[in-house]
Simulated assay, not measured.
Amino acid sequence: MQDRPEDIPTQPAGQTPTQPGFTAPSAPSPALQPQPQAQALPQPRPELTPGQSPAQNPGQAATSTFGAPPGYPPAQQYTYGQPHGYPPPPGGKGTAGRAVLWVVVGAVAASALWAGGLFLLGPWGEDPDLAGYRAKANLCSAVDYTALMTEYGEEDDLPTHNSLKHKAIDQSYCSISLKTSSSSSYADAYLSVQMDLHKKTDPAPEFTAVWSEYDQRYEDYEVEEVSGIGDEAYLLTEDTTSGTGTSGSRAVILAVRDGWMTYQMSWSAYTSSYETSTPPDIDKVSRWVRTDTRSTLENLRSE
């Protein structure tokens, strides 16, 4: 047996000799031991420290100095609650507060709408201003055309009438054939009367637009505003008769608004169907229509 050289140090008992560039494996830390999982999820490949092999720590959980592995981002923290675009979780802390918040928002919105309704319709909604007029099932029974009978002495025994009754509007209509004499085979002229009672909306703006600008639609008509009949009235006249008086037509319309009641009396005649000479001139018929309108409106109030 050879003696050990004196320059080689004695190794402690149980210690493995080391070589340059080699690191002795260390015992796994208890904190790095695999923990029980609530659900079986695929485990990422463990990261190794320099000089460590998988055989040295086969059960070590995956760790990374750069955070979680791809595909498993950490849960983002929102200081002010749920991020924008995500619905609130059902139940749990904060649900009652959100419910109270929505109740308050709904109450404020309802109050705003209610206040807007009061502003537009008045304290309890606006009642229709029917100015004392009443709907007639047979409007012809209330039409007075005494002034027109100056020209047309033959009274129509079978005038046509119809009516409509609704919670929003009542309408009554009458059509009368006018004859200059009993010898006339056909009507020499026609008279129509219509009354509308508007019970839900004020007709004033639309009435003004339609009748004051009537000549925009029909170029042959002339429009004249009339005072002293209702709240607003327009006289519309048309005369397309030729110089010889053998062709063309003449027409007169008086449109009246009184409160939420609207009314029209219309007269028309065709020269070709007139039994004797030509229809009366426009100015004369306009006077008759004004007179008969006033008396007819009185009848519609009193009956």
Rank of each mutant, 00 (worst) to 15 (best):
E222P: 01
V256H: 00
G117Q: 05
G153N: 09
D196W: 00
Q11E: 10
Q216H: 07
Q33Y: 10
T180S: 07
R4W: 15
A187D: 11
Q2G: 10
A209W: 09
T291S: 11
A135D: 00
P54A: 08
P9K: 08
T160D: 15
A112P: 04
G153K: 06
A61Q: 07
P34T: 09
D196N: 09
Q19P: 06
M149G: 15
S273R: 13
L41Y: 10
E213D: 10
K200V: 14
A269C: 11
S181A: 07
G21N: 12
P87A: 11
T240C: 14
T63V: 14
A137S: 08
K200L: 12
Q82N: 13
A115H: 11
K284N: 07
W211L: 04
P42V: 09
G116T: 00
P9L: 01
L197G: 09
R134K: 14
R301M: 02
G81N: 14
A68G: 00
S273N: 13
H161R: 03
G117R: 09
Q76D: 12
T262H: 04
M195H: 03
S181V: 02
Y72N: 07
F66D: 00
Y190H: 07
S242E: 13
E225N: 00
S266L: 00
V210K: 03
D157C: 05
M149T: 15
G92L: 04
V143T: 12
P44S: 08
T241G: 15
V210G: 04
C174H: 14
G153F: 06
S182H: 11
Y78K: 12
L197P: 05
Q56L: 05
P90W: 11
Q11L: 02
S183G: 14
L121P: 12
A233E: 02
Y72D: 03
G94E: 06
E232H: 00
P73N: 00
L235D: 02
D7Y: 15
L130R: 08
Y270Q: 13
P205Q: 01
Y190C: 12
L235A: 00
G71R: 03
H161G: 01
Q264W: 04
S266H: 07
V252P: 01
Y152S: 01
A137L: 02
E151L: 08
Q19F: 12
S247D: 15
V108E: 05
A189L: 13
K179D: 06
V193Y: 10
V226H: 01
V108Q: 05
T180Y: 08
K199D: 04
H166A: 09
G245S: 09
D292Q: 09
L118M: 12
G97D: 07
L32T: 08
A142L: 04
P73D: 13
P83G: 06
W102M: 11
C140S: 15
K165F: 13
D283F: 04
P17V: 01
E222A: 05
Q194E: 02
A251L: 03
R134M: 09
G132K: 02
G230N: 06
Q77W: 15
D281Y: 05
G91L: 06
V252T: 09
R45W: 07
S266F: 06
Q77N: 11
A135L: 12
M1Q: 01
Y86Q: 15
P87N: 06
Q171D: 01
N57K: 11
